[in-house]
Every structure is written in C-alpha cells, then in structure tokens.
C-alpha cells in the first residue's frame, strides 16, 4: 500500500484551474520529486495534500484513508509535515520558539526538548542562533529552521517545497544531503523543486508537472535521461 496516493485531484484558485486531474503515489521510504516550471502547480499539489487548499474533486489517500476534507491543522497530527515555499519562518519568534511552535501538538515537555536537541544536532548553526529572531536569519539558516521545525512532530511524510530556493550552491548541496540523510533515517519525502538536476539526483522516482497536468513519470534516473526532460528542465545538457 502506498503511504500517499492522489487520485484525479482537481484544485481551483477562484476561476483558475490549477490542478487538472493529478494522480500520483508515494510509497513508504521513497524520495519522490515533482519537477516542473514556475506556475505548473507544484506548490498547489503540496498545499492540497497538507490541507491548505481544498480540492474541488478527487481523493487524497494517506495510509489508505481519504484526508482531502481534513483541515490543515489536523493533517499535521496524522504525520504529514510541510516545509512550505519561502520557508515561512515566524519572523518575530526566536529560533527556539519557532521549534517549540513546531511541536504545538505535543504536550510532553521532555519530548519537545528531545526533539529540539535532535534539530540542533542536525543543524548546529541553529543552536548558535537559538535566541535570535527567525526574521534575522540568513536564507540558508531559515531553510534549516523550516526543516527542523517540520521535524518537531516527527512526521512520517515530509512535504518539501523548493528547499533550494535562493540558496548558494554549497548550501543547496548541504540541504540536499540532509534530505537524503532524513530519508535514510526513515522519512518518506515528497520534494518539489525547480532545480530538477539535483532533485532527480537524490530522488527514487519523479513526476513532471506541466500547467496542472502530469506529463511524465518514472524512476528518477530514467527521467533525467529523457531528452525532453533534459531540454526543458536540465538546461539541455
């Protein structure tokens, strides 16, 4: 059974038909990437899964159960973490408070503290900055914080939206290494990226999204080898 399955999802923003019948699956233990141009509907797909937007029709099955009508704040408690586009750090909360609010649904203070330490081990930089306001962090640090914050509720499935956006190449490598490590330690990951090259390098499988429709899918290595993918998303090399 797939951990996550989307069945013929149609999502609208007002009159704009953003997702036109998306069907995809993510199996436990996988890194699946969703690549595509700006405005193709990649973020909308993630937002539909995490309950931030409601699909007009279709089903989102998580562990076999339909969740497309469940409010976003309850989706989190089912084990889906979302690292949103643009990081969305709470700018006037400290790094530590950002992590604590990530564990909002946990009532065990000791557990929250443990998870915080795990985050600090993953990103020692965050420990150094723990008393600083989130809004004063650099882009890379904010990305680390967004990931650590999503990990606070120990999700099974991690939705990651453009983690490479606006980061220096060396940081992009570091973040993607971290994503791979998280996957090895048991997290299933659905990764949305404009940087298709690096996304296809670490993913097991991939989907190509074009103006709200999936046009290609398959093992990441096969996708990366396809001439049309190379031409459109890998800069023609």
């Amino acid at each position: 059974m797939s951990l996550l399955e989307l069945k013929n999802i149609h999502t609208y923003y007002g009159h704009i038909h953003a997702l036109k019948g998306i069907s995809l699956t993510v199996k436990e233990g996988e890194i699946v990437t969703l690549i595509g141009a700006n405005g193709a509907g990649k973020s909308t797909t993630l937002r539909t899964i995490s309950g931030m937007v409601k699909p007009r029709s279709g089903e989102v099955l998580y562990q076999g159960k339909p969740v497309q009508r469940v409010p976003a704040e309850q989706i989190v408690s089912m084990g889906i973490g979302h690292v949103p586009e643009g990081r969305r750090i709470f700018p006037r909360l400290t790094v530590e408070e950002n992590l604590e609010i990530g564990a909002y649904l946990l009532n065990d203070k000791k557990l929250v503290e443990e998870r915080k330490q795990i985050g600090f081990q993953l990103f020692p930089r965050l420990y150094e900055r723990r008393a600083q306001k989130g809004g004063t962090l650099s882009g890379g640090e904010q990305q680390m914080l967004a990931i650590a914050r999503a990990l606070m509720q120990d999700p099974k499935l991690l939705l990651m939206d453009e983690p490479s956006m606006g980061l220096a190449p060396v940081l992009v490598d570091f973040i993607f290494e971290t994503i791979q490590n998280l996957n090895r330690s048991g997290k299933t990951i659905l990764l949305v990226e404009q940087n298709a090259r690096i996304a296809l390098q670490i993913a097991h499988r991939g989907y190509v999204l074009q103006t709200g429709e999936l046009t290609l899918s398959g093992p990441a290595a096969d996708l990366a080898a396809k001439p049309e993918v190379q031409a459109a998303y890998l800069g023609g090399h």
């Binding site: 409010p71 704040e73 709470f90």
Partner: peptide, 17 residues
Amino acid sequence: TAIRAVAQDMNTARLMG
C-alpha cells in the same frame, strides 16, 4: 507563543497544528 505565531503568519500556524 501560539498567539504570536497566529499574529505573524496565520496560514503557517495551521501547518504547525
């Protein structure tokens, strides 16, 4: 903390549960 989080970014607060 939750009040401040909602004040700063209501949608992201929902992602925190």
